[in-house]
């Protein structure tokens, strides 16, 4: 997993709530057997019409808005557990998603792929939307070590929280499999005491 420590970037505003993983990556693009290239189809049906023409009114097609941070409304990533949603966002170039609320499975998937979900208050989220929409060159600064999000060049900031273990993984670029494998002996002794009717 790629390390994440600090990022200063412009942000792409997508002020919709309940953005589900079917919108992030529709099921018909889940047929691959590798993790690559899902970014091409990120938000496919919002980005393109049925005739493959770009939808001019969708923010990813607006070249004025670029950046490695996606700013989205509450309950981001609800619905299907498809990790392809996190892969698609990362592959497209996003490293951070900011929202006031994330769905559980999406949050876990993002963290397992070096994509940082930053959960902030509804009020600060509104302020960020306003800042980014009124000045597209607004820079946001995400500092994982300090757990803060700041509008660069201003005193507007809020702290966010993250599971300390996941924070360590992101800062160092570690992932969970290495850790679990190291517990093999403990897992085997757990199995010896575990009821056999649950271990069919």
């Amino acid at each position: 997993m790629k390390k994440f420590q600090r990022l200063i970037s412009r942000a792409v505003p997508l002020p919709l709530e309940n953005i589900d993983t079917d919108q992030i990556i529709p099921a018909r693009f889940l047929k691959a057997t590798t993790r690559e290239n899902f970014g091409e189809n990120l938000f496919r049906d919002w980005r393109y019409r049925a005739d493959e023409q770009s939808r001019e009114d969708f923010v990813l097609n607006n070249l004025n808005h670029t950046g490695e941070i996606l700013l989205a409304g509450r309950n981001f990533g609800c619905g299907s557990s498809r990790e392809h949603a996190a892969w698609a966002l990362f592959d497209y170039g996003f490293r951070v998603v900011i929202s006031s609320f994330f769905a559980d499975i999406f949050k876990g998937n993002a963290l397992n792929n070096g994509l940082l979900p930053v959960e902030i208050s509804q009020g600060f989220l509104r302020e960020l939307f306003h800042a980014v929409e009124s000045d597209k060159s607004t820079l946001l600064c995400v500092d994982l070590e300090k757990e803060t999000l700041q509008i660069a060049g201003t005193d507007r900031r809020e702290s966010f929280s993250i599971d300390p273990y996941k924070k360590m993984c992101l800062l160092k670029g570690y992932d969970d499999i290495d850790f679990l494998i190291s517990l093999k002996n403990k897992i085997e002794s757990f199995e010896e005491k575990h009821p056999s009717f649950l271990s069919l």
């Binding site: 499975i105 499999i177 679990l180 517990l183």
Partner: peptide, 12 residues
């Protein structure tokens, strides 16, 4: 669970 966790469950 997501696919990374599928891999974890397979491995451990």
């Amino acid at each position: 669970i997501g696919t990374s966790q599928v891999a974890m469950a397979m491995a451990s």
